[in-house]
Structures are given as C-alpha cells and as structure tokens.
Design a protein around this nucleic acid. Structure first.
Ligand SMILES: [Zn+2]
Ligand SMILES: [Zn+2]
Ligand SMILES: [Zn+2]
Ligand SMILES: [Zn+2]
Lengths: 132, 132
DNA sequence: AACAGTATGTAATAATATAACATTCGAATG
DNA sequence: CATTCGAATGTTATATTATTACATACTGTT
C-alpha cells in the first residue's frame, strides 16, 4: 500500500491551482494567483512546488520552467516522466505509454551508470497547429 | 553534404570555452570567463549560446540550466539529445546509442502529434559516486 | 514538558534570461 | 565600387526565476 500523503495548507492551495489549470503554470504566475489566499512570498510557492514535485503530484516541464499536475494517477512513478510539447501553442501533455516507460526504465548503456530517474520531452506540432 | 557553418567571433569564443570544459557551464560563468575576450554583456553570451544550440554545436542541459559541447560528431541530429546526469557529482555525459535514438525518433502515440525533436535526461549515480 | 523534524513567514538578494534600440558587419547583387 | 539586406553586435535597462538566511510556529513522539 502506498503511503498516504497529507498536504499542508500551502501545498494544497498550490496543488488546487495547478490542477485546475489547462496549461503549465509558471511559479510567479502561481504566486500572483494565490496571493489572495495568503501566500505572499516566492519562497512559499517554491517550497510547496518542491514538495509537490517530490511526491509526484505535479511535474516540472524543465524546458519551460513551468509546472503541470500529474495525469497518471498521481504518477506512482514520478521519477519517470514524459511529455509532449507543442512548439506553436505550447500545449503540454503527459505521455502515458507503458511500452515507452518500460523501455526507458530498463535502458542501460555501457557507462556503468544505474539510472533511477528520467525525464523526456518531445517537441513538435499538435494536431490543431499542424493543420493551420 | 552538410552545409558548412562559419562561426562569428563571439560564437567561436563561447564555443571554445564550452568545448574545453569538462563539465556543463552556466551562462554567467561563461560570461565571466570571456570578459577578458571582450564579451561584456549577458546578451552577447546568450546570443552566441542560442546560435550554437541551434546549429547543434552545444546542447543545453535543461534541468541544470547549463551548456555542454556536443560529443556526437556535432550532432547531425541536434534535435535528438539524451544525457546521463549524476545527481551526486553532477557529471553529465551525452548518450550516443543508436537503438535508443532510433526508438525515440520513431516513437508515436495516439495524440496525433508528430514529434520533430526530443530531449531526454537520465538521472542516477555514476560509477564513481555509486562506490562511495 | 522536552525534543526533533517539518513547515511557515519575511526580507533580501542571487541567478537566469530578455526587451529595446542603435550600430556594424558581410555576403550578394548590379 | 556602391547598394542593399539580413544577420550579428554593443549597450543599457529590466524582467523572470530561484535561493539564502534567519526567526517563528506547528506536529507527533518520548
Ligand atoms: Zn505524472
Ligand atoms: Zn499546438
Ligand atoms: Zn550532440
Ligand atoms: Zn557522480
């Protein structure tokens, strides 16, 4: 059984916002949006984000410095993430493909390094933008 | 035949520095190091970096906001990059594995999106750090 | 109650990156 | 050679992203 994670007030406020959003949110946009809820300083947001990323409730899109809620049943495997990113409209989708995740989780090369985590970002044009 | 890329003075200065480095370099560390060569402002460095990334001479390690020289014969496929990153010593290695790149270049899901580019970052402990 | 670990609040500052605009360079053309 | 045009440069200012430092408060355990 997975350990239940109780979120603190700040963490819950930030998570709610990120989950409601249809697009990746940037830290300072989050800050702006939660100021009416009492989170006044960047650090309060960053600390909540750090924790939420750590427990897999949200992910950071590294190439965009933005955050999205996890769409894979709270990513039991938050250490194995893959996203598709439209370079035109910036739509981001979390990829949930068991073949891909199996392939990457088992990937080994001759470096002698044991990988415990990965993050993959695909770029291209989404259906909509392709047909413009 | 591939189009020859002539680098400008600023681009060459930045590239030389990144190629000499055994570790990923951050933009402002690059700036500091090339100031004696006349590049005084952040933008001069960022512009050179942008161009070098565009033509595949260097890559950006997104999770670290740092830059490394390409190790794959100037990445004919600079739009298909994979790295291993040691979370202890921060050593970064560009992965050159044709099976992996073939697998990812051909990856498709049911989103209808055609991927033209990807970046993959593996995390773990390098040989050295594992044995400590 | 004492303690340890985690979370919070707050201010200041560091680190990363871009906007705006004037100027210069360099290849291509006529 | 003179003109043109796109790319690159120089410079200043500013925007955006993220962390340091330190004091305080909350939570569960002994
Ligand atoms: Zn997820
Ligand atoms: Zn799109
Ligand atoms: Zn490369
Ligand atoms: Zn290491």
């Amino acid at each position: 059984m997975e350990k239940q994670q109780y979120l603190t007030k700040n963490q819950q406020i930030v998570l709610d916002l990120v989950e409601k959003s249809s697009e990746p949110l940037k830290a300072y946009s989050i800050l702006f949006n939660v100021q009416k809820k009492g989170l006044k300083a960047p650090l309060q947001v960053y600390r909540a984000l750090d924790k939420l990323v750590e427990i897999g409730k949200i992910h950071k899109i590294e190439s965009r410095n933005a955050f999205v809620a996890c769409k894979n049943s709270n990513c039991v495997v938050s250490n194995a993430t893959a996203f598709s990113i439209c370079e035109s409209c910036e739509k981001v989708t979390e990829i949930n493909n068991s073949k891909l995740s199996k392939y990457l989780a088992n990937f080994q090369d001759n470096s002698g390094m044991k990988y415990s985590k990965y993050n993959l970002e695909f770029f291209g044009l989404c259906k909509k933008c392709k047909n413009k």
